[in-house]
Simulated assay, not measured.
Amino acid sequence: MTLETLIAEPWADYGLIDCGHGRKLERYGRYRFIRPEPQAMWAPASDDWDAHGEFVPGSDEDGGGRWEFAKPIPREGWPLGWDDVRFTAHCTPFRHLGFFPDMSPVWSWMRDQVSDLPHPAIMNLFGYTGVGTLAMAARGGEMVHVDASKKSVEAGRRNATLSGLADRPVRWIIDDAAKFTAREVRRGRRYDGILLDPPKYGRGPEGEVWKLEEGLPGLIGDCSKLLDAESRFCFLTVYAVRMSALAIGELMRQAMAGLPGKVEAGELAVREERRGLLLPTAIWARWSR
């Protein structure tokens, strides 16, 4: 299996300005932030980083961390956009800012896979604040958005309103992704595409425990049962684990063995603006017809 890198290029409302020595400097609209980045092992282009805030990680024992702000920012968040989707960015306690910019090439790729379908049925598992959901809904997708966090689903609804997409056919579902997918299999549902972005560890709304290494094979297997020979894609991203893209690629290949098409795998990366170097962020595997 040949590995491919999907690269998030800078756009008007986001850019990786600089990175190095275990940190990265990014712009989110008019605001700039510094966050930890263990994979940035090289030296930065400049030592002079002017930022509005920085996330300072906790110790290995304590975990977590905190934001420290040098300049005022809107604590309730501020609007950003990607293509025809609008959403709110804000500094979360989990060090990110309410969306994942490295997913932008995935959103574009998914749109291409179903561009000839007027109303493709697509499910977004672990959908978070819904930017991927809205990227597809904006192009006519009939979406099922699933996340265990009520707060995240509510943020997705607000982003839909901000994007002028509140009237689009999106089912906003607060549920355990694995349990919901298994029920969809029993219901005999089918989808044209599935996007899943599972965490390493998480809990469902009723205390269900999710561990990636244990739960992913069964979840991918259930996803394959919701696809058929006319379906277009299944895209999986995996973050923050000691796992190879080849491993999840072979898992995807086994699960999709009964479907026509191809399986590919690789890494996600963001291109730095100052030097053009690539900062790796995640691994991925996908099936497409």
Rank of each mutant, 00 (worst) to 15 (best):
H145M: 09
R186Q: 15
Q254P: 04
E76L: 09
R95M: 15
P10L: 08
G127H: 08
I7H: 08
L246P: 01
E264T: 13
N159D: 11
A12V: 11
L226A: 07
I248Q: 02
S231Y: 06
G58L: 07
G29I: 08
R111M: 01
F87M: 04
P169H: 10
F55R: 02
L165Y: 11
F180T: 14
M123Q: 13
W82C: 00
A51Q: 10
G249W: 02
W11R: 12
L134C: 13
L16M: 10
G258Q: 05
R274L: 15
I73T: 12
V144S: 10
A160Y: 06
L134P: 07
M1F: 06
R203F: 11
L236E: 02
R275G: 12
R274S: 13
L117N: 03
S59V: 08
V185E: 13
D222G: 03
A265S: 14
D197Y: 00
M123G: 14
G127W: 00
G218A: 04
P44F: 03
D48Q: 14
A160I: 07
G193A: 06
R187P: 11
I283N: 05
A135H: 06
D112F: 00
G221F: 06
V170M: 13
G22N: 13
S244A: 12
A285H: 00
L278K: 04
R27P: 05
L162T: 12
Y239P: 02
R275H: 12
L278T: 08
G81M: 06
C91E: 05
N159G: 12
D222E: 13
P57S: 08
A182R: 15
G77A: 03
Q254S: 15
G64C: 04
A255G: 05
D167V: 11
F235E: 09
F33E: 02
K151E: 14
A247M: 06
R66H: 12
I73Q: 03
M110A: 07
W172C: 10
P79C: 00
E4R: 14
G63E: 00
V56K: 05
E76K: 13
H21R: 15
D60V: 13
G140E: 05
M123E: 08
D175L: 09
D116W: 10
P57R: 05
F233R: 01
A138D: 12
D50F: 10
A121W: 08
G53I: 04
S104Y: 04
R35G: 04
F87Q: 00
G156M: 03
G188L: 09
G193K: 00
E54C: 10
G218T: 05
P79F: 00
H119P: 08
S152K: 06
S149A: 09
P101T: 03
I7N: 09
P118V: 09
M243N: 07
P198V: 04
E273S: 10
M256H: 01
L195W: 12
Y14S: 11
E68L: 12
G58H: 07
